[in-house]
Write a protein that binds this DNA or RNA. Structure first.
Lengths: 143, 143
DNA sequence: TATTTATCCTATTGTTATAATAGGACAAAT
DNA sequence: ATTTGTCCTATTATAACAATAGGATAAATA
């Protein structure tokens, strides 16, 4: 059970934008790549997904940089996750397209369903602002 | 984020044994395969892992069938999970073999760590007996 | 003792999802 | 006119996982 690299990088990219955006200018893809040790090319895909999900934008085109479309406290980690995945689903027979013929008399179904709900709830409860607060604590410790 | 087929089948195999074992005789691999729609050959691997983890045994050799080594209320789903996986680890940098050089100043670390603990706690809190109880409820509904 | 057969063991193949790279088009800024 | 940050699509690598396969072993039983 592992979360994908895209989700992990997506969170880091969002953090990077949140930390470095300012009123007049956003954050360049290149700078995100440098600060987060990612290839600019690979970051292409990450940025694209975040844009499609309308979590970031670069309204005035090139050279404007990327900014968050909402306040960090209004962006949940579930929002970020779902920019890359169709949703949270710990096993296939949890999804709508149920294949398992035994699902109606499956004793394990309740167990997996409970886990799925737990994970969704956790992702939904944490916001980008929470991670920014964590970042502040870390930075304080260093200084 | 998906749990492996082996873990899912492992839980089902354990349920099958718990439901059908008796004082004098255990459950045959072949019968588990038939009842759970799995190939006998694939079940080989599942059974092997469960044996190595000492969750089941067939002490008197062939024809004795498999029995649980402990009471269902003393077997957690985490025990079953860990018969197939080295442990629960939602992202690689959670593992002991930490590769990520940014881990000491990573703002996302707390988020992932919290999730990891949550999932472990859930797996540890549920026992095979809980699933047997669920099974009883399901069976009651049918009758 | 020969045969059956459930289990045991190891190797191999098939399959899929993911990670990452690559090449170039486009359009705004200078 | 040229630069360059972004945009778009295709392709390749890679690795983990799912599943099959073939045969060895040893206990039961005929």
């Amino acid at each position: 059970m592992k979360f994908s690299t895209k989700v992990r990088y997506g969170i880091r990219a969002m953090l990077e934008i949140a930390l470095n955006q300012s009123e007049d200018i956003g954050v360049f893809q290149k700078d995100i790549a440098i600060n987060q040790d990612l290839s600019v090319k690979y970051l292409d895909h990450i940025i694209h997904s975040l844009k499609v999900a309308r979590l970031i934008s670069n309204t005035s085109g090139r050279k404007s940089g990327y900014k968050l479309t909402r306040e960090p406290e209004n962006i949940s980690i579930l929002d970020i996750h779902n920019a890359f995945e169709p949703g949270i689903c710990v096993i296939d027979c949890m999804s709508d397209a149920v294949k398992c013929s035994r699902s109606h008399h499956c004793a394990a179904k309740g167990f997996w369903g409970g886990l799925n709900n737990l994970v969704i709830k956790y992702f939904a409860s944490k916001t980008l602002q929470d991670l920014l607060d964590d970042q502040s604590l870390i930075d304080d410790q260093v200084n």
